[in-house]
């Protein structure tokens, strides 16, 4: 499946898709040293993390930067609603960031897939298992 996206921070990405259908405050809800999303106790390191958008603390940008520093960062991120805290964090950490249309997260849901994006393209490809 090919899905058009708005590229906010460009870069190559090939990683298993992980959909978290909620907003994330990177500060408080993500442990940068281990790359754990605390609410579900799951790793976000090395995945294509799709979520609704950011919330909460403005320290979030530093937490995204710290994820990269500790080598626990997602391979790329997809959000429905982009906002400055996440964009700035992804720019600093050089993590590709894409905006997806509303409803995308629900459609894909818990299906297992690998997400591929090539730098310069305006879409991502989903390879379902």
């Amino acid at each position: 499946m090919r899905e058009r996206v708005r590229v906010l921070v460009d870069g190559d990405c090939r990683a298993p898709l992980r959909v978290y259908n909620d907003y994330i405050s990177f500060f408080g809800e993500v442990d940068p040293a281990t790359g754990t999303l605390k609410a579900v106790g799951e790793q976000i390191a090395g995945v294509a993390l799709a979520f609704r958008g950011g919330r909460g603390s403005t320290v979030g940008s530093y937490v995204i930067y710290a994820l990269k520093y500790y080598g626990r960062e997602p391979s790329c991120m997809l959000v429905e609603e982009p906002e400055p805290i996440i964009i700035t964090g992804c720019i600093m950490a050089d993590i590709p960031l894409f905006q997806v249309r509303k409803g995308f997260l629900e459609e894909v849901g818990s299906k297992r897939a690998v997400l591929v994006h090539e730098k310069g393209r305006d879409y991502v490809e989903l390879h379902f298992e």
Partner: peptide, 24 residues
């Protein structure tokens, strides 16, 4: 930055700021 201060600046003082991440 500082989300609470951002909300006060916009909502109480009528100034304008986005919720900037710390580095921004």
């Amino acid at each position: 930055g500082e989300s609470s201060a951002v909300a006060v600046a916009n909502s109480v003082f009528g100034a304008s700021t986005n919720r900037e991440g710390g580095p921004l």
